[in-house]
Nucleic acid binder design. Structure first.
Lengths: 240, 240
DNA sequence: CCGGATCCGAATCGATACTG
DNA sequence: CAGTATCGATTCGGATCCGG
């Protein structure tokens, strides 16, 4: 095998040889949310060919990034090793960087539960959240529903939909019952990017129908916008 | 054009579409050191096919990462845009992450001036350096010679060899005359990785002929090892 | 020499079908 | 559920060539 080498003895080169192949970092992104079955990954990455998925999983295991874990009951999951988890700050930083270049979504572009979960993590401002009271949000984007709890500098995201079969049967029932009801429930389209990016205020977002409050206290959207923010500078750069 | 899309509306995906193609991040790595001509890049990435290099440069320009700048006298250089420079912490973090997986170099693996320069930046500990007196090092690895100056939390690296034609003719002569003579001059092979990784002490490195002091004060190697360090944990993780 | 463009075989990727 | 097999479409790699 010996993946096509760049022929350099250098840490960056080594890293790119390990996780630079097509799709590899997106697999890592989804596994950052939690262990996933082969099928979960396939659904979270609808356009990945199955042979590529299995090839990448093998390569990532060989690289020590991913581990294959048989489940006690049946089936198996892939999960990040501690070494793989070290990629978290890098993937989040890449997500912030790429955010500045996201235009309008193409007709084929979708939002998945895992990508949105990671997106919230990339935008999460622990510093800003720490000085705000705890809050629970329920966020609907396309067919994805996330229950988001912010408590001080801690962020917790649960995926209510699409509801895949839970990996751990003991988790059954916990999925829907996540630390009480949310304080506000709202639905958004891809334009939520504008809110995160600070290009519109929550009020403007509602006005322009980028976002709609389904229930709860609409005033909490202000707090949401302060908690999840990626401010891009005029030159495309990322502030703070 | 519309590069092969991953079909997701997500910051990480966007980032990977912009800089995830083969060779792209290595071009960025070299440009982080400074503006480079087409030929410089080709020499710094000896295994890149020239059509790939020009394709990538076009794509990176389109992505707003790289800018093509005609020189006043003649020729032209490529340089990172402010947006491209935002990748610096990401590339450095990737270099640290990949460092943990660098084994012995293969027979075809080389060390280039730019890759070694970036490697020093990835390993640089501003916090440790800040509490140490200023120091000048001259480092020889293969045919690369770097003049490294550390002054508090500031790191400056000049490339003495291989001596390419300077981009700015006014810089002529400055190349060799970099803020006085170094305090210590030493030569190393790929085993310098062990010193940076904390697997050997400077004394052991000299004993095992990983490193040889050519002139100056060998005691300064202790300071070098504290200034440039990537500590990897048993699981392959990266400490601090 | 610099800054590429062109051509072509080899390797990889993508889409679909199929299997234990 | 968790992949393997197949095969055409793309991309990559290596070499050569070209205009300034």
């Amino acid at each position: 095998m010996a993946a096509r080498s760049y022929g350099q003895y250098c840490g960056v080169t080594t890293a790119v040889e390990l996780i630079g192949e097509r799709w590899a970092l997106l697999i890592v992104r989804d596994l950052l949310v939690g262990p996933r079955r082969y099928t979960d990954l396939k659904q979270g990455l609808p356009k990945i060919p199955t042979n590529i998925l299995s090839t990448r999983l093998k390569e990532l295991q060989e690289a020590g990034v991913v581990r294959r874990v048989p489940l006690p009951n049946c089936g198996l999951v892939y999960e990040l090793t501690p070494y793989g988890r070290e990629l978290e700050p890098i993937v989040l930083a890449l997500g912030r960087w790429g955010f500045a270049s996201m235009g309008e979504p193409g007709p084929e572009d979708i939002v998945t539960a895992d990508s949105l979960t990671v997106a919230l993590r990339t935008a999460f401002r622990a510093d800003a959240a720490a000085s705000l009271p705890p809050a629970g949000y329920e966020l609907h984007v396309a067919d994805v529903v996330l229950r988001v709890h912010v408590d001080g500098a801690r962020l917790h995201v649960a995926q209510l939909a699409p509801a895949g079969r839970p990996i751990d049967p003991r988790a059954q029932g916990l999925a829907g019952r996540t630390a009480g009801e949310p304080d506000v429930v709202f639905a958004a389209g891809p334009g939520i990017r504008l809110l995160i990016g600070g290009e519109v205020t929550p009020a403007e977002a509602i006005d322009r129908e980028i976002l709609a409050v389904l229930s709860g206290d609409a005033a909490l959207l202000e707090r949401f916008a302060r908690t999840f923010a990626i401010r891009t500078e005029p030159d495309g750069g990322i502030a703070a």
